[in-house]
Design a protein around this nucleic acid. Structure first.
Length: 258
DNA sequence: TGGATTTGACCGAA
DNA sequence: TTCGGTCAAATCCA
């Protein structure tokens, strides 16, 4: 099964789980509120939207790939094709660009370059465990010229270290939880809602890593609003300069573009 | 003080 | 020769 297909299955499973929660809530009206049911319905609809977007994007990529084969003049692309790469776009809703792109792995910045024809420099990151575990994972992060809230991220090679941030000394489980809560609060984010589906992408690795977190959080939690406010306070207190401090409004679920 | 980031230099591909 | 990618010394920061 392809990674994209796995994502679709995951999304559908999530929708099924949410539907079950909604059914339980409806069977026990005394233990649930109208608001929590609305949240569940909203999440279920979002699961379907994501699934449709994934399938649509998959078809687009097939067309794109066939077109790329005939374009022999693109040196840049040819260089990247030498390695196993995966390109994703990530959009954020606030300006804390330094905190985004936390995909659960530990990255260390090793360079930055001004790219010819691009307004914004490209940052080069390698896995923290490159030398200790020989992990060859590398990613390139560049702010989109057209949309300052969007970042183009290229993943080159995949992690072989099998170590996520939660397993390191910089473990920030609270941040991950907060990140997930942000995911839950996505419908309140007007900025992201206005983005095109193509812009709302996240890496497959990222979703694989988050799947457990996603399932452990209860959407019907009546205290969600309070938690979300706490989370916002937490994010506001995080340093924007560290790559491991969590993600801002990367709420989007999504599909890989690789 | 050790780890992370910055940034100019260097290298290879086209 | 140009440009993208990487290296490594300098610097920053908790």
């Amino acid at each position: 099964m392809l990674m994209e297909e796995k994502l679709v299955v995951k999304e559908l499973e999530q929708g099924k789980e949410l539907a079950n929660q909604l059914m339980n809530s409806l069977n026990n009206p005394s233990s649930s509120s109208k608001e929590s049911n609305e949240v569940l319905i909203s999440e279920i609809l979002h699961c379907f939207e994501n699934t449709i977007s994934m399938m649509m994007n998959r078809d687009k990529k097939k067309l794109k790939r066939s077109h790329e084969r005939s374009d022999q003049s693109n040196k840049k692309r040819r260089m990247l094709e030498k390695k196993k790469t995966e390109k994703v776009n990530i959009c954020i809703g606030s300006g804390q660009e330094g905190t985004l792109l936390d995909d659960g792995h530990c990255w260390r910045k090793y360079g930055q370059k001004d790219i010819h024809g691009s307004k914004n420099p490209r940052g080069y990151y390698r896995c923290t465990h490159k030398f200790t575990r020989g992990c060859l994972a590398v990613k390139q992060v560049q702010k989109s010229d057209t949309n300052p809230l969007c970042y183009e991220v290229k993943y080159v090679e995949s992690h072989t270290c099998d170590i996520t941030r939660s397993a390191t000394k910089h473990s920030l489980p609270v941040s991950e939880e907060a990140e997930q809560k942000l995911h839950d609060a996505k419908h309140s984010d007007d900025t992201v809602q206005h983005m095109k589906p193509e812009e709302l992408m996240l890496s497959i690795e990222d979703l694989d890593y988050k799947k457990d977190i996603f399932r452990t959080f209860s959407f019907s939690n009546p205290e969600m609003d309070d938690d979300f406010l706490e989370w916002k306070d937490l994010m506001a207190s995080l340093s924007p300069t560290t790559s491991e401090s969590g993600i801002t409004n990367v709420r989007v679920s999504c599909f890989a573009n690789g």
